[in-house]
Design a protein around this nucleic acid. Structure first.
Length: 468
RNA sequence: GGCGGCAUAGCCAAGUGGUAAGGCAGAGGUCUGCAAAACCUUUACCCCCAGUUCGAAUCUGGGUGCCGCCUCCA
């Protein structure tokens, strides 16, 4: 039984989908006004992992992640760049996919854009107005928070407490500080759409309610996002959606922990801001992914060069085991298993069961990675050139299976062949070694290293791998 | 002021009642022409104090420190 920590109850709950083995997930995607940063990346990677794992466990997952392509930041940036909001959005949606693809984040089933759902948004706002939850004020439309009696159930605050901390901006047309905009009247120079309230654009929160509902139905199984979305964004989504449909908006809310820099929240004003694009200049994307999944998704994590280095070394250990197994698969004999090998496979099977057990427990990827390391040690100790090929193949298969669930081992190309020239060089070096001409042997090894091929001499022959 | 989180080895990080997984780094060793990889050995008063319990890193109370949300923010 999979357990998920639900922000609504602040408890781990048994995961029971609403409808059989179908699971609908909606996560709040980026506002596409810039490259996304490592904090965003953590959220995307986390939900990619969640989605993978649920599929691995046999669920039929439908995954939707939106692009916010109209809001204050979009307008501001577009003006700075002297381009339209549409052009800005198009550009950074492309950039999103470039980085997300690199990180091994799979495409959602639907990536809806807010600006392509203006009609749907207007419909819902009208519904809210008809039901008495929304009011118009000089071309703006606001949601009246006090009308929704469950307001605050996600962030576990009551309205009066919230209101004590709230500010009213000068010139606001709200009746109450906790009310929030569903529709904003056009200001000079802003993109706008026709509506029953005049020209304007949607507020931020309503887009997610509308798109989630449109693609996944009135109630979704899992809704997720970054920690700072709990309030007000998700709180407001609940208020809008549940007022409009009369049904629960989402069964489980999952929120990822912060990614900090030097134990502080990343922010542009502190100058501790890293885009994924920058990180990938220095590190392999999979290292970033490994780093993220080395901690539980709800824990805050610190980002630093040192930790990236550690992650890189750790990942390398995993890859080394893979390369060794692949090499052994070529040189071992195809024969029946020994009793010892049967026992070994049983132990490996237990590691895999442990992997599933800890992943079932609210996606404990840190523990899951530990089971992969356990399996690797077992393999390194027990498997060698005298092993049965079946055992080698089975080990490799298990490792790849577990690694792939977490999105690792994307660079491991099984059965990859070196081109003939390199192959010839390796043989030439072996001849030199046999003749004890180590100067030549080392020279060849260095030459190949420059081409990114690392040679390692093992009892089972020469093993090669690609650098990084 | 309201709400919440965190504190485990040099670094990172699992672990919610039975005396501490895993990784990185360090030291020593084995193997090896060298290198690499791998393996073995080695490193923890679980922030402090009190309590509950046969037994607590794990539960309770108090304290200290750090962080976050309550305002756009992943």
């Amino acid at each position: 039984m999979i357990k998920i920590y639900n922000t609504l109850s602040r408890k781990k709950e048994d995961f029971v989908p609403l409808s059989g083995n179908k699971v609908n997930i909606y996560t709040c995607g980026p506002t596409v006004y810039d490259f996304f940063h490592v904090g965003n990346a953590r959220v995307f990677i986390t939900f990619d992992m969640v989605r993978n794992y649920l599929k691995y466990r046999g669920y039929d997952v439908k995954f939707v992640q939106n692009f916010t392509d109209i809001d204050d930041k979009m307008i501001k940036r577009a003006n700075e760049e002297g381009i339209t909001v549409k052009e800005l959005g198009d550009r950074f949606i492309r950039e999103y996919f470039t980085d997300a693809d690199a990180l091994g984040i799979k495409r959602a089933d639907v990536h809806p854009r807010a600006t392509e759902h203006i009609e749907d948004i207007i419909e819902i706002i009208k519904t809210l107005q008809d039901k008495g939850y929304a009011y118009e004020a000089e071309g703006d439309v606001y949601y009246e928070a006090r009308k929704f009696k469950d307001y605050g159930k996600l962030s576990h605050q009551n309205l009066d407490e919230l209101e004590a901390g709230a500010r009213i901006e000068p010139g606001e047309k709200k009746k109450d500080p906790m009310d929030f905009a569903l529709w904003k009247a056009k200001k000079p120079g802003e993109p706008a759409w026709e509506s029953p309230w005049g020209e304007g654009r949607p507020g931020w929160h309503i887009e997610c309610s509308v798109m989630a509902m449109k693609y996944l139905g009135k109630t979704i199984d899992i809704h997720g996002g970054g920690p700072d979305l709990i309030f007000p964004h998700h709180e407001n989504e609940i208020a809008q959606s549940e007022a409009a449909t009369g049904e629960p908006f989402a069964k489980y809310f999952m929120h990822v922990g912060y990614l900090n820099i030097n134990n502080q929240k990343m922010s542009k004003s502190l100058g501790n801001f890293f885009t994924v694009r920058d990180i990938l200049k220095k590190y392999d994307p999979e290292v970033l992914r490994f780093f993220m999944l080395s901690s539980h998704y709800r824990s805050p994590i610190n980002f630093s060069e040192e930790l990236m280095q550690q992650a890189q070394s750790a990942l390398e250990r995993l890859y080394n085991a893979l390369y060794t197994l692949e090499h052994l698969e070529k040189v071992t004999a195809d024969r029946e298993l020994t009793a010892e090998e049967e026992r070994y496979l049983k132990v490996q099977q237990q590691h895999k069961e442990k992997f599933v057990e800890v992943m079932d427990d609210d996606f404990n990827t840190a523990d899951a990675i530990a089971t992969i390391f356990d399996m690797v040690r077992e393999s390194n100790v027990s498997i060698n050139e005298n092993s049965s090929r079946k055992v080698v193949a089975k080990t490799l298969e298990l490792l790849l299976e577990m690694g792939n669930v977490l999105g690792f081992f994307g660079k491991f190309k099984q059965g990859e062949l070196l081109d003939e020239e390199i192959q010839r060089k390796i043989e030439e070096r072996q001849q030199a070694r046999k003749a004890r001409d180590f100067a030549l042997a080392d020279k060849i090894r260095d030459e190949l290293k420059e081409k990114g091929i690392i040679l390692e001499d093992t009892p089972a022959g020469v093993r090669w791998k690609r650098q990084n």
